[in-house]
């Protein structure tokens, strides 16, 4: 992926298995978020392909708009929380349900039985989702009033509302203390089981990464410099060099 003369992603090759938890780590500026943005259609890669395997067959994601990518089952959270601050917690999740609903302009205007049933069902579903992950009590709160940790969690729940098969988490532990990070770790495990999806996360918190990931990819300067299980990565000399400078 190049921006003008700047090669941001150079021959980046990823394989993410179904139901797996994969981590993407690397120093700042390595191109991790750029990679996410390419996956989700915010940037269109200047070369390469992105394939999403679905029950109905493999699907090319290259060149699709972000909303199309989400509808196909790839959801994400953002490095700097992008919640809809002036709406309530429930409304945020309801918006997440958007791509799984059918009602359009006519449905909105005439409020026929089908539309009303769908609204009720989705509200119910959203509440259940919030409750399942510990935010049920805050359903009618304005999002901007939530504490930071709850906001991070809400962003994940909102992404879950789109019923993804692959969940991209961009630095989900940023700003969380040790206790909250433990909760996040449990959350990710539960999500993987309950919602049967795969997780790909960008993280800087090494303890979280090491304890949760099955596969780790390491990037530096736009290239993948190492991949493997946490054990392998921990001892890889290139990774150590990238993070700590010369051989420590």
């Amino acid at each position: 992926m190049s921006f003008g003369g700047l090669l941001a992603l150079d021959q980046v090759d990823f394989q993410i298995g179904a139901g797996s938890i994969t981590a993407l780590i690397g120093p700042n500026g390595a191109g991790k978020t750029t990679f996410f943005n390419c996956l989700t259609g915010i940037y269109i890669p200047t070369s390469g392909t992105i394939t999403l395997n679905q029950p109905s067959g493999p699907r090319q994601l290259h060149g699709l708009r972000p909303d199309q990518v989400t509808t196909l089952g790839l959801a994400r959270t953002f490095q700097n929380i992008r919640l809809f601050n002036d709406l309530t917690v429930l409304e945020n999740v309801l918006i997440g349900c958007h791509c799984r609903m059918k009602a359009g302009l006519l449905g909105a205007l005439f409020r026929d039985r089908k539309t009303r049933a769908e609204e009720r069902a989705m509200a119910e579903f959203s509440y259940q989702l919030l409750d399942r992950y510990g935010l049920g009590g805050a359903a009618n709160e304005l999002t901007k009033n939530l504490p930071y940790g709850a906001q991070r969690r809400l962003e994940i729940v909102r992404a879950l509302a789109t019923r993804p098969s692959l969940l991209l988490l961009d630095e989900p532990a940023a700003g969380l203390n040790i206790g909250e990070t433990r909760e996040l770790e449990d959350l990710i495990h539960i999500i993987r089981e309950r919602e049967s999806l795969s997780v790909l996360l960008i993280e800087h918190d090494m303890s979280l990464v090491m304890s949760i990931s099955e596969q780790i990819y390491v990037m530096e300067y736009g290239r993948v410099i190492a991949r493997g299980t946490p054990e392998v990565i921990r001892n890889d000399s290139r990774v150590i060099q990238a993070y700590l400078g010369e051989e420590a």
Partner: peptide, 8 residues
Amino acid sequence: IACQAMGI
């Protein structure tokens, strides 16, 4: 941006 990420 977030709006698009929600499939809208």
